[in-house]
Amino acid sequence: MKLHYQELGEGKPLIILHGLFGSSDNWMTIGKKLAENHKVYLVDQRNHGDSPHSDTHNYEVMATDLKEFIQEHKIENPHIIGHSMGGKTAMQFAVTNPDLYDKLIVVDIAPKAYPVHHDTILEGLKSINLTELNSRNDADKALAEYVPEKGVRQFLLKNLTRDENKNFVWKINLSVIEKSIEAISKGLEKHLSTEKDTLFIGGSESHYIKNEDHIVIINFFPNAKVEMIEGAGHWIHAEKPEEFLEVVMNFLR
């Protein structure tokens, strides 16, 4: 699958993968900063952003998408950053293709299975009747019945766009994501691992990386270290960008 991407800067290549319901645009601010020292590729994963839609959505195919992207663009030994779902894609790629990248940074996700917990968001997005929608404000009002946090709604509604006939449509493949939500929640296969340098960055206010997860992390990534950023939730790069960039750049040096 030919993934849509945005390219910034020059230097050592660095690929960034967004999380569930996200897109490459979510990482533009961080990407511009990292592009001062790197050639940054901001990638839309399948069924997200401007990349193609597919009926299949799991970490095996998304890791293959990443491998094909690296090979197609002749990218040599890139660093890889993955957030949430993108972090699991990056981990799956790393343990199956340890010779195709340099360093790995995983943002606020562990290589374990998580309980399915996006039901309310999915119900909220499905509740928006696109055929009767007149404005983004109407979409926000409908979604607010399911998602009270304004910032989360703004993030989710970045997936709303208009087609050539000016009708509202979703950029994300909502039906396939809903169908695949259990696969998105799965952990890595236990027999795979890599000794490449790996950094896990967690938010102290997030529940995705807990103290007990450090053992699971080391089982897959023996040379991993974990750094927690105080006061950050799940969207660390948006909530604490300066602290996030400092940790990332120190590791990449």
Rank of each mutant, 00 (worst) to 15 (best):
N129F: 02
G9W: 07
I229Q: 10
H83F: 01
A113F: 10
L34F: 05
G11V: 12
G82T: 00
K240Q: 15
F168D: 05
F21S: 03
I209A: 08
D99V: 07
L157W: 10
H118G: 06
I229M: 01
T96M: 11
K32F: 03
I201T: 05
A183W: 07
S23A: 11
I70T: 10
V147I: 14
Q71L: 12
L3Q: 08
K39S: 02
G49W: 09
S206I: 14
S24A: 15
E246C: 10
G19V: 02
K39M: 02
N26F: 07
V247E: 09
N211C: 04
V147R: 00
L245V: 02
P222Y: 12
H57C: 06
W170G: 02
I181N: 04
V107P: 02
V152Q: 09
N26S: 03
L160M: 14
G11F: 07
H73A: 06
A224P: 04
Y59G: 00
Q45P: 00
E7I: 08
G151F: 13
F21H: 04
D197I: 11
V216W: 05
G202H: 11
K210V: 13
E212S: 15
R46Q: 01
T161C: 06
R46N: 00
F200Q: 03
N134E: 13
K166P: 00
E205T: 06
L245D: 04
N219K: 14
K33H: 08
K179F: 06
E123V: 00
V147C: 01
V116D: 12
T89V: 13
K12F: 08
M62V: 04
N47T: 04
K210E: 14
D213P: 05
E212H: 15
F220E: 07
V95W: 08
E7V: 01
G49S: 03
V95Y: 10
F168E: 05
H234R: 12
